[in-house]
């Protein structure tokens, strides 16, 4: 369970990225975080695993405070798995090394330097590669894989940490519509299997509504919507993004649902104009 209380971030340049954000994520709940560019989505999830240090506010993970001052940074980060936009794999390392890098928070420098990970870690890495369907690619270099395969490696790396929370930053930003759905489906399934809470930053509102349990809408650093996806109506979208013809987007989303495989370039262009 994740509890965020009054999280505030003001950058040195003066940007007030977050203005007292509070919410709670239950175990196994997948939350979609939506909002326009610059609304603070990226800052919010980075404040949780302290890639960015918040100016004020507290974050609790399973009732233990993890914000600054509370414990060692390394111990905090290893409890939280993160999946990145454009994968952020180490391109010149193998798939296996990328997955095992999820254990870096647990093993000593010399063990990791000589790639002598405990047998249990390696077993788990094979199990996860099998789960994401990449067993036969374990020895390939990460840059030899396709976009969808790379994001699967990213997922396996995050799960290799045995995380208590998943933070997911635009997981489908550079994937085609079909692969995007497969990746979202995989993430949601995994969260259900292991009762893992997750926060997904996502630009594609229709895709978010299709998969997540709950949507939080962020605008200019403040929560303006927090409810189940079915309650995200035109008024709510206007509150989050501003005035637009939301009915057109809904229609597109319905078309997609009918015809999953035939997602066309034209749709992407229409969507790009909207969200």
């Amino acid at each position: 369970m994740l509890r965020v209380e009054g999280l505030t971030k003001r950058y040195k340049a003066g940007d007030h990225a977050l203005k007292g954000v509070s919410f709670t994520v239950e175990p196994g709940q997948v939350v979609g975080l939506i909002g326009p560019s610059g609304a603070g989505k990226s800052t919010l999830i980075r404040c949780v695993n302290r890639l960015v240090d918040p100016t004020a506010g507290k974050v609790f993970l399973n009732d233990a405070e993890i914000t600054s001052g509370a414990g060692d940074l390394r111990r905090v980060r290893r409890r939280i798995g993160m999946i990145f936009q454009e994968y952020a794999l180490v391109e010149r390392l193998t798939v296996m090394e990328n997955v095992l890098s999820g254990r870096l928070g647990y093993v000593s420098f010399w063990r990791s330097f000589f790639r002598r990970f405990p047998a249990g870690d390696i077993e788990q890495a094979f199990r996860l590669l099998d789960r994401v369907g990449l067993t036969e690619h374990a020895d390939k270099r990460a840059d030899a894989l396709s976009g969808g395969q790379r994001q699967r490696v990213g997922i396996a790396r995050a799960l290799e940490q045995n995380p208590e929370l998943l933070l997911i930053d635009e997981p489908t930003a550079s994937l085609d519509p079909k692969t995007s759905r497969q990746i979202m489906r995989l993430i949601v399934e995994i969260c259900r299997e292991s009762n893992l809470p997750a926060i997904i930053n996502i630009h594609d509102v229709a895709l978010a509504q299709m998969f997540v349990d709950r949507i939080i809408g962020l605008r200019a650093g403040e929560v303006v919507f927090d409810d189940v996806p079915s309650r995200l109506d035109n008024a709510a979208l206007t509150a989050i993004y501003g005035e637009e013809d939301w009915a057109a987007m809904r229609k597109t989303a319905e078309d997609d649902a009918e015809d999953d495989a035939e997602a066309t370039q034209a749709r992407i262009e229409r969507m790009a104009g909207l969200v």
Binding site: N49, L51, L73, R74, R75, V76, R77, R78, R79, I80, G81, M82, F84, A88, L89, V90, L93, E97, S101, G102, R103, L104, G105, Y106, F109, S112, F113, G154, R157, Q161
Partner: peptide, 17 residues
């Protein structure tokens, strides 16, 4: 950033990223 987020130490980030 991705390797740091796993909880890797400074030296491990050098080695892996």
């Amino acid at each position: 950033e991705a390797v740091s987020a796993t909880g890797a130490s400074r030296l491990q980030v050098m080695d892996y990223a």
